[in-house]
């Protein structure tokens, strides 16, 4: 809150990027990093669970039976590119270029939507066409819940970005909207990092071993 005194680490805020230019913005961004640390534990637990259960297929389809490299690569590329465009939006934010910021954020959510669409399609293929729904085996439970949690995060991120886009359009780039755009960027990159782990721990190991 703006009312506390921060003379311990009193910084010259005018030289800071806009999102850090108020004490409130600074506080929220710090808190968001801590929230991401908690998210890391959350995903870590899900990864641990998945790795424990990976081989417990109960006679049902295995990772090797199900996974196909094509759709997975498509999802990966789309999400990585969206992270790149999200980074570009932050650069435009730093330049105080509202149009560029909004534009790249829109590209980011479009890519996000494509990713979610591909993932839903993948889930549908497994669950309906290949007879491998989450209730088939512990392995599949772990798979669907780990990836589903990530997918829900991406979907929530899309809703969040849309909210911020509306605020940006209405209010322009202010310390508050700048903070929000910056934070959603952190969130988006975080989800990308999680995906890289999913790609390695779930798909690559699943296809190879």
């Amino acid at each position: 809150m703006t009312h506390s005194l921060l003379s311990l680490n009193e910084k010259d805020r005018s030289k800071m990027p806009l999102e850090y230019s108020t004490e409130e913005g600074d506080l929220r961004i710090v808190g968001f990093w801590i929230f991401l640390a908690a998210e890391l534990v959350l995903f870590g637990t899900l990864f641990g669970t998945y790795l424990v259960l990976q081989s417990h297929t109960a006679g049902g389809p295995t990772a090797k039976d199900l996974f196909e490299i094509g759709p997975v690569m498509a999802e990966t590329i789309v999400l990585l590119v969206s992270s790149f465009t999200c980074g570009l939006s932050t650069i435009e934010l730093r330049r105080h270029n509202k149009k560029g910021l909004i534009g790249w954020l829109i590209v980011t959510i479009l890519l996000g939507l494509v990713f979610v669409g591909l993932e839903v399609n993948e889930f549908y293929t497994y669950a309906v066409h290949e007879g491998a729904p989450l209730s088939r085996s512990a392995f599949l439970s772990g798979f669907f819940v780990l990836l589903g949690t990530h997918g829900c995060h991406v979907s929530l991120g899309i809703v969040w970005i849309i909210g911020i886009l509306l605020q940006l359009a209405r209010r322009g780039i202010t310390p508050v909207t700048a903070r929000k755009a910056f934070m959603v960027g952190l969130y988006w990159h975080f989800l990308d990092v999680v995906w890289i782990f999913i790609f390695t721990a779930v798909y690559l190991t699943g296809l190879v071993i």
């Binding site: 259960l53 417990h56 109960a58 049902g60 989450l134 209730s135 085996s137 512990a138 439970s141 669907f144």
Partner: peptide, 18 residues
């Protein structure tokens, strides 16, 4: 909760849960 509501098998031995 997912085990109980949606029939997943994280903790049920039957389908490989632990």
């Amino acid at each position: 909760t997912i085990d109980r509501l949606f029939g997943a098998h994280f903790f049920t031995i039957a389908a490989g849960g632990s």
